[in-house]
């Protein structure tokens, strides 16, 4: 293909439209519009069809299920699929915030509130149902985000022999991506709790357990003191 043509060395300092042609391997759409020509705000109020998402997500789960060794492995894969989405959404949603509230989250609470309101509203058109801190004094780094009926699980029926599985691990991956991106490294896992008396009302209730790394808690204590 283009390999026989002489390739201009890339210009070190000045770049212009004319330089476009000198980059081999980079293709441009015929109308000249690249990702940089598209506005970032356009789809703010547009919603996607839930059935098409359910179909896509079903395929993602079955793709992740190939060659896995167990439930944990499958959840890990779903988590990994969601992680880059979280990293990208963090900056996209901050960009869409009005300038006055366009601040980077500096504290755990601010970050979790960003996740339960802004992120949740962007993904599911409603805020998360609860945000709690672990009441166990041994685990001060654990926080819980509850969702009474996760949108991703709406059309998923988990077989009995896999009852440990919660496909909202994908959402947990998104949350983990946001935490990691914002400089709060954490492990996030999804757990089904729809049992007992609460299960009557919300059988699909899922708790996202956010476990921050020790250095995050340490920094939080330091920032709180100064």
């Amino acid at each position: 293909m283009a390999s026989s043509q002489p390739v201009k060395p890339p210009l070190a300092t000045q770049a212009s439209q004319a330089q476009r042609g000198s980059q081999p391997g980079l293709r441009y759409p015929s109308n000249g519009k690249t990702i940089y020509h598209r506005p970032l705000n356009r789809s703010r109020t547009q919603e996607l069809s839930q059935s098409s998402f359910a179909y896509l997500f079903g395929e993602m789960v079955s793709y992740a299920q190939k060659r896995v060794t167990g439930i944990q492995d499958l959840e890990k894969r779903l988590n990994v699929q969601g992680h880059p989405i979280g990293l990208k959404l963090l900056d996209l949603l901050l960009y869409r915030e009005p300038p006055r509230t366009q601040t980077r989250p500096l504290h755990i609470i601010a970050l979790l509130q960003f996740i339960t309101t802004i992120l949740w509203r962007h993904l599911f058109s409603r805020p998360a149902d609860a945000l709690e801190k672990s009441s166990n004094p041994d685990t001060p780094e654990e926080y819980m985000i509850s969702d009474n009926e996760p949108l991703v699980n709406q059309y998923i029926s988990v077989p009995k022999e896999m009852n440990q599985l919660n496909c909202a691990a994908f959402v947990a991956g998104i949350v983990e991506g946001v935490c990691d991106g914002a400089g709060f490294p954490a492990r996030v896992t999804a757990h089904s709790v729809g049992k007992g008396e609460e299960g009557e009302l919300w059988p699909g209730k899922t708790v996202f357990l956010v476990k921050f790394e020790p250095e995050v808690v340490e920094r939080e204590a330091y920032l709180g003191r100064s």
Binding site: Y36, L40, P84, K88, L92, G181
Partner: peptide
């Protein structure tokens, strides 16, 4: 603004 467009590219890694 342009940076956010860059990172939204699915082929861009952190």
């Amino acid at each position: 603004e342009n940076w956010v467009k860059t990172i939204m590219n699915p082929f861009y890694n952190v």
